[in-house]
């Protein structure tokens, strides 16, 4: 019936995920990397919602709730780490954090 919407919603999720991946890989600013990760989480949530809609079950939205919670906690801690990075190196360039090499 309306399966095209579910399919296209999934396609959109895939596109958003890959765009977010591009953003994480390209940017050097830790802040932008975290924003891109948020985009990826968003995409995953969209996939869950679409699946829940396809099956007509509330589990999709419950999972989306879990995803958002996770994203929020991760953002909180991540931004704290970003602040720490900024204080130490006076820059948010993530390439400065390369001492775990070898």
């Amino acid at each position: 019936m309306d399966s095209q919407y579910i399919d296209h919603a999934m396609v959109l999720a895939g596109i958003l995920f890959c765009l977010g991946l591009v953003g994480v890989m390209v940017r050097r600013n830790l802040l932008f990397m975290m924003i891109s990760i948020e985009v990826m989480l968003n995409a995953a949530g969209l996939a869950f919602i679409a699946a829940g809609s396809a099956w007509g079950q509330p589990e999709g939205q419950i999972m989306f709730l879990a995803v958002i919670t996770l994203g929020a906690a991760e953002v909180a801690v991540g931004l704290g780490l970003t602040l720490l990075l900024f204080r130490h190196h006076n820059s948010v360039n993530v390439d400065k954090l390369n001492q775990l090499r070898g």
Binding site: L21, V24, M25, M33, L97, N98, Q99, L100, R101, G102
Partner: peptide
Amino acid sequence: FSQLQNGQLRFYIATLA
């Protein structure tokens, strides 16, 4: 292989992808 461990976060992400 030890060159794969260069401490660069973005490189690791690319590897993951």
